[in-house]
Design a protein around this nucleic acid. Structure first.
Length: 219
DNA sequence: CCCTGAATAT
DNA sequence: AATATTCAGG
């Protein structure tokens, strides 16, 4: 037996990382019980069974409204090469970047750090986004971090397209997120499908889980 | 060429 | 262990 893909020459790259890497404001995500926030993506799920809109009357107002995600405080440029997305009509629905983690070192997670009981009412979920790679181009494919907002957008796009039309390409096109590639969506789509399958038939399996996202989403 | 499934790497 | 990335196949 031959295993062709046994060894993979990994590019040891570590080229440059000079850019701004001085202060990295870590966002403290509080796993509070924001049921409202959680219900957000839950509401975007195809509760019923028929979610296959055979007719595509273009973008619906509901979707457009649902897509109205917080648009950060203009930290990024705004020149989009393509602007032919149906969603990118005139609403601030484009310019979404995903934060990424740098550092190659394997560092343990930081210890818990509780403030002095300061009120954290303001949620950071819809706050500022840290653009990681955008203009700067480096042979570094940072691990994509699917933020709840990004995931929500993804879910909305899938729900709109339907199970039969939810193709990575269409989703990417609808999301219109710069930096988001088809592979990224395809990968996530797989996970999303598995998640749906898992929740649909919890037979002989653990209890239903919300969504195995790396974010606070506990019910 | 595109989409889906599994394997692999971090 | 979980998630994203990548390879391979249909």
């Amino acid at each position: 037996m031959l295993s062709p893909r046994g060894a993979r020459p990994h590019d040891a790259t570590a080229p440059a990382a000079p850019s701004f890497s001085s202060s990295s404001p870590r966002h403290r995500h509080r796993a509070g019980m924001d049921a409202g926030r959680v219900a957000e993506w839950e509401a975007g799920l195809p509760a019923a069974s028929e979610l296959t809109p055979v007719s595509h009357p273009l973008i619906t107002p509901a979707l457009a409204a649902a897509f109205r995600i917080n648009i950060g405080g203009g930290a990024f440029a705004a020149a989009s090469p393509f602007d032919d997305s149906p969603l990118a009509h005139d609403s601030p629905t484009s310019h979404l970047s995903f934060p990424c983690d740098d550092e190659d070192e394997e560092e343990e997670e930081e210890v818990e750090e509780v403030g002095e009981g300061e009120g954290e009412t303001e949620d950071a979920a819809s706050g500022s986004f840290g653009a990681c790679r955008g203009a700067g181009r480096a042979g570094k494919k940072a691990r994509m971090v699917w933020t709840p907002e990004l995931h929500h957008r993804f879910v909305e796009a899938v729900a709109y397209l339907g199970d039969k039309g939810a193709v990575p390409k269409a989703i990417v096109r609808l999301m219109n997120v710069e930096g988001l590639t088809r592979e990224n969506v395809a990968s996530h789509l797989q996970k999303y499908r598995i998640y749906l399958k898992r929740t649909r038939n919890p037979a002989a399996t653990q209890h239903p889980q919300p969504f195995p996202t790396a974010y606070g989403s506990s019910f």
